[in-house]
Write a protein that binds this DNA or RNA. Structure first.
Length: 765
DNA sequence: ATCCTGATTTTTTTT
DNA sequence: AAATCAGGAT
C-alpha cells in the first residue's frame, strides 16, 4: 500500500544527514538530541514537527513545542508552515512561560485566581519584595530587595513554596528570607498576581493537584518537543514530567509517592529534547545542566542522537571552540567538525582602552561594509549590557545604523510601564502595584501619605484597592484635597473600565492616554525627552493596533493582550532588517549566527566576569565564551582593552585567560597586542615598524614570524605549543593560567607540571 | 506635595 | 559616568 505522502516525506528528509534523519523520523518514546553548535538543530526540530504531522502521528494541535524565545518560536512556526505548505493554527509553539500563561488563562480559577491575573515582571517583583522586606523590618542596607528576590526566585524555580522554604531554612539569613517570602507570597495572592516564576510553579501545582486537568493536557499534547533543554530548570523539568509521564523508573508507581523520586504519572513519554550541555549558560536562573546530563537515566530507553557536523562555521573557528571547551571537565564528549574549509584566521587585538577598542571594532566594521558586507551580517557581542554604550557612541559618530538587544527595554520605559499599569488596573482591580504606580502619574496631588492611607484602608477591609479608592470619603484621615483628587481619578477610571469591555485595545489606550491627562502632562513639559516619551506611547498604541487585527476571534481580550506583552523578551524585538548592525550580550546571542562576530571585552574580570569566578562559575563563563565563538560563521574578532572605565573609574585589565586557550595557529595577533606598552625596545619598534594600521593595529600577520622567534623576549605561551625544558626535556603546553603559570606535559614520563613561564628554563621548539 | 541636592550605588547574565 | 535615593528646603 503506497503511502500517498511518500514523495512528500522523501522530500522532507532530503538534504538531512544520517543522524538528523534519525532524529526526525524517530517515532514514539523519549528522544535526546545532543546537538552541537550550528549542527542544524532548529532544522531538525522543524522537520520533525512537520514529519509527525505528515505521517499522521500527530495533528498540529497535539504538539507542544517549547523554544527559548518567542522570536525563535515564530521563526520555527514559519519554517514548519513552509515545510507543510499550510498554516499550523492550534499548534502550541512558544516559550515555557507563554505556554504556562496560556494554560493559566484557562485554569487559574482552579487555584483561586481570576483569568485576568496580572503578571509581574522582575522590576514589579522587586518592588513587592521591598514592601515585604520593609514589613519584616529587614535592614535595606544589608539586604537589597534584588538579593532577597533572587533567593525567593531560586526557591520557586526549585518548586519550594514559602512553607517549604521555612521548614528547611538554615541560619538567620534564610529565616529572614522565609519571613519575606511569606509576606511576598501573601501579597501576590491578594493582588491576584503572579511573578515569572509563579507561571511555572502554579502550572505544576495545577497538574499535581487536579488529575482531570492533567489528563486534559497530557491527552492534548501527544508530542512534546523542547529546544535548549540544557537551560531548563527544575520547575520546567517537573512540568515536562507531568505532561509526558515517566521520568525515572518508567512504569513505576502512580507518582503519588515520595517527593524526591521524580517518577511522574504514567504517560505517553513522547518527549523529544534538543540541547547541548556545552552551551548551558543560565545557571543563575536555576537552569540545571543535570537535566540534560541525566536524561538517559531519567529515560533509560531513550534514543540518543548526536549531531556533530557543523554547517555554520569554518574549521578555524571550530578548532578554537573545541580547544576552549576542552578546558572544562565533564560534559558529554562531542567534537564538532565542518566541511567549510579553514577560512580566515581569528583576529585577536589588544587595545589601550575601551574607546580604542570601540574604534578598532567600528573601523573593521566600516572596512567590511566597504567590501560589500551587509550590516545584518555583523554582530558585536559583549559580557554586560553596560559595555554597549561606548560602541554605540562610536557607531553613532560614524553614522552606522545599529540595533541593541537588551539593556533598557521598550516595555521597561517608565511611560510604557505607566500606560500598561493603567490597562492592568482596568483588567485586575486588585492590582495594588499598578494602582500605586499610576495613582499620581501624571501628578494629580495624590502623594505618598494619601496613598498609604488608601492602601491600608483597603487592607483593613480586605477589599480590592479599586473598591477602597472608589469611595475616598470613607478613607480615614484623608485630606479634603486628596479625597477630591482621588474621586476625579476614579471616575475617569470607571469610564475607561466601561470602554475596556467593548473597545479594541488601541482605541482604549488612546482614550486612556488623553482622558487621564497623561499625554497632556508630557506635552506641557515641552522637552525633547518628553517628545520621545510621547513617541514611545504612540508606538505602544501601534502594538495594540497590531494585536487588535492579529488576534484570533475570542482571544483578543485585554487580559490576553496584557499577558502577552508581559512575556515579550527583548530578544523577541530583534529585527532582521538588513540595514542594522546588531549589538547584544553573549547571552542574548544564543541560538543566533552571523557571518562576522566581534567579541569585545575579553579581559579578566570582565570575561570571565569577576562575580562569576567562584563555585563552578568559571566553567559556565567558558561555555559562554564557547557560545560566543560558535556564533561566527566566517570571521571572528576578539578584542580586549588594557584599561577600561568601570563605574567611571579607570581600571587595569589583563587579557582573558580564555584567549590563551585558543591554539596559536588559528590566531592572527599582531605583536604589539602581546607586548604591553613600555615592555622593551622590540615592542616599541614593532609599533613603528610594520606600519601600524588605521587604528593603531598592525597589518595582519606582519610580525607573526617575530612572535615565534625563540630568542625574543618571553611572550605568552599558548595552548598546544611544543617546548623543551632544560631538566625535563620535551613537552607540550596543556594549560595556561593567569599569573604567567603554564601547565606542561612532558613526553619523557607523561607527567604534568606547573611552571612559571618567565623563569623556567624553557625554549620553544 | 513637590522639588532640589548631595550621597550612594551600579555591572553579570534574563524569561 | 549615570541613575537612583534619602533627606531637607520650599
Amino acid at each position: 500500500m503506497q503511502n500517498p505522502h511518500a514523495e512528500y516525506i522523501e522530500e522532507l528528509l532530503e538534504g538531512l544527514n544520517e543522524p538528523q534523519r534519525e532524529a526526525v523520523t524517530h517515532g514514539e518514546g523519549p528522544l535526546l538530541i545532543l546537538a552541537g553548535a550550528g549542527s542544524g538543530k532548529t532544522r531538525v526540530l522543524a522537520h520533525r514537527i512537520a514529519y509527525l504531522i505528515h505521517t499522521d502521528q500527530a495533528q498540529a494541535n497535539e504538539i507542544l513545542a517549547i523554544t527559548f524565545t518567542n522570536k525563535a518560536a515564530s521563526e520555527m512556526r514559519e519554517r514548519v508552515e513552509r515545510l507543510l505548505g499550510h498554516a499550523t493554527r492550534g499548534m502550541w509553539l512558544m516559550t515555557f512561560h507563554s505556554a504556562c500563561a496560556r494554560i493559566l488563562r484557562t485554569d487559574a480559577p482552579r487555584l483561586g485566581y481570576t483569568r485576568q491575573f496580572t503578571i509581574y515582571d522582575q522590576a514589579d517583583a522587586r518592588r513587592l519584595t521591598k514592601r515585604a522586606a520593609d514589613a519584616v523590618g529587614v535592614d535595606p542596607k544589608r539586604y537589597t530587595p534584588a538579593a532577597l528576590n533572587n533567593q525567593i526566585s531560586a526557591a520557586k524555580n526549585q518548586l519550594r513554596d514559602a512553607a517549604e522554604y521555612r521548614s528547611t531554612a538554615a541560619g538567620p539569613f534564610e529565616e529572614m528570607v522565609a519571613d519575606v517570602y511569606d509576606i511576598y507570597e501573601r501579597d501576590l495572592v491578594r493582588m491576584n498576581a503572579m511573578d515569572f516564576d509563579d507561571l511555572l510553579f502554579r502550572v505544576v501545582n495545577l497538574l499535581e493537584l487536579f488529575d482531570d486537568v492533567r489528563e486534559r493536557y497530557t491527552e492534548m499534547f501527544r508530542h512534546v518537543l523542547v529546544d535548549e533543554y540544557q537551560d531548563t530548570n527544575h520547575a520546567q523539568y517537573r512540568l515536562l514530567q507531568l505532561l509526558v509521564g515517566g521520568g525515572r523508573a518508567p512504569g513505576g508507581g502512580e507518582g503519588e509517592g515520595g517527593r524526591p523520586s521524580y517518577a511522574g504519572p504514567i504517560g505517553h513519554r513522547n518527549l523529544a529534547v534538543v540541547g547541548d550541555d556545552a552551551q548551558s549558560i543560565y545557571s543563575f536562573r536555576q537552569a540545571d545542566i543535570r537535566n540534560i546530563l541525566d536524561f538517559q537515566e531519567d529515560f533509560p530507553d531513550a534514543r540518543v542522537v548526536k549531531l556533530e557536523q557543523n554547517y555554520r562555521s569554518t574549521e578555524t573557528i571550530l578548532s578554537a571552540a573545541n580547544a576552549v571547551i576542552a578546558n572544562n571537565r565533564g560534559g558529554i564528549a562531542k567534537r564538532l567538525w565542518s566541511e567549510l574549509g579553514q577560512g580566515e584566521q581569528i583576529h585577536l587585538r589588544g587595545l589601550d582602552d575601551e574607546h580604542a577598542e570601540a574604534r578598532y571594532v567600528v573601523g573593521e566594521i566600516e572596512r567590511l561594509l566597504d567590501e560589500g558586507a551587509a550590516r545584518s551580517e555583523i554582530a558585536v557581542l559583549y559580557r554586560t549590557n553596560a559595555m554597549s554604550r561606548v560602541i554605540e557612541d562610536t557607531l553613532v559618530r560614524r553614522e552606522i545604523a545599529y540595533q541593541v538587544i537588551g539593556g533598557t527595554k521598550f516595555y521597561e520605559r517608565a511611560e510604557i510601564k505607566d500606560a500598561i499599569a493603567y490597562l492592568t488596573l482596568l483588567a485586575n482591580p486588585q492590582d495594588l502595584v499598578s494602582f500605586t504606580r499610576i495613582a499620581n502619574s501624571p501628578r494629580r496631588g495624590l502623594g505618598a501619605t494619601s496613598l498609604a492611607r488608601v492602601i491600608s484602608h483597603a487592607q483593613t477591609l480586605d477589599v480590592p484597592i479599586w473598591e477602597a479608592a472608589a469611595s475616598p470619603q470613607e478613607v480615614p484621615g484623608l485630606g479634603a484635597a486628596a479625597v477630591k483628587a482621588l474621586d476625579r481619578f476614579m471616575s475617569t477610571m470607571h469610564e475607561l473600565r466601561e470602554l475596556s469591555g467593548e473597545a479594541p485595545i488601541a482605541e482604549l489606550l488612546e482614550s486612556l492616554l488623553s482622558q487621564t491627562g497623561y499625554v497632556e502632562a508630557l506635552e506641557a513639559e515641552r522637552s525633547i525627552e518628553a517628545q520621545g516619551r510621547i513617541e514611545n506611547l504612540e508606538q505602544l498604541v501601534e502594538v495594540g493596533r497590531e494585536f487588535d487585527t492579529a488576534a484570533a476571534p475570542g482571544d483578543g481580550g485585554l487580559d490576553v493582550f496584557l499577558q502577552e506583552i508581559a512575556l515579550v523578551a527583548d530578544a523577541d524585538t530583534r529585527s532582521d532588517d538588513a540595514g542594522l548592525i546588531t549589538l547584544m550580550t553573549l547571552h542574548n546571542a544564543k541560538g543566533l549566527e552571523y557571518p562576522t562576530v566581534f567579541i569585545a571585552g575579553c579581559e579578566e574580570g570582565v570575561f570571565p566576569h569577576s562575580r562569576a569566578l567562584d563555585e563552578g562559575g568559571l566553567e559556565e563563563e567558558r561555555r559562554l565564551f564557547y557560545v560566543g565563538i560558535t556564533r561566527a560563521m566566517r570571521a571572528l574578532y576578539l578584542t580586549y582593552a588594557r584599561r577600561r572605565a568601570v563605574f567611571g573609574a579607570s581600571t587595569i585589565g589583563l587579557r582573558s585567560r580564555f584567549l590563551d586557550e585558543i591554539p596559536a595557529e588559528v590566531l592572527d595577533e599582531p605583536l604589539e597586542s602581546v607586548f604591553r606598552p613600555g615592555l622593551g625596545s622590540i615592542g616599541r619598534r614593532a609599533m613603528h615598524g610594520a606600519g601600524a594600521g588605521e587604528n593603531g593595529a598592525a597589518a595582519p600577520g606582519a610580525w607573526r614570524e617575530a612572535a615565534r622567534d625563540p630568542t625574543g623576549p618571553v611572550t605568552a605561551y599558548r595552548l598546544g605549543e611544543d617546548i623543551v625544558h632544560a631538566g625535563f626535556g620535551e613537552g607540550v603546553v596543556t594549560g595556561v593560567e593567569p599569573g604567567g603559570v603554564i601547565v606542561v606535559r612532558f613526553a619523557a614520563d607523561g607527567s604534568e607540571r606547573k611552571l612559571m613561564a618567565e623563569y623556567a628554563p624553557l625554549q620553544r621548539r
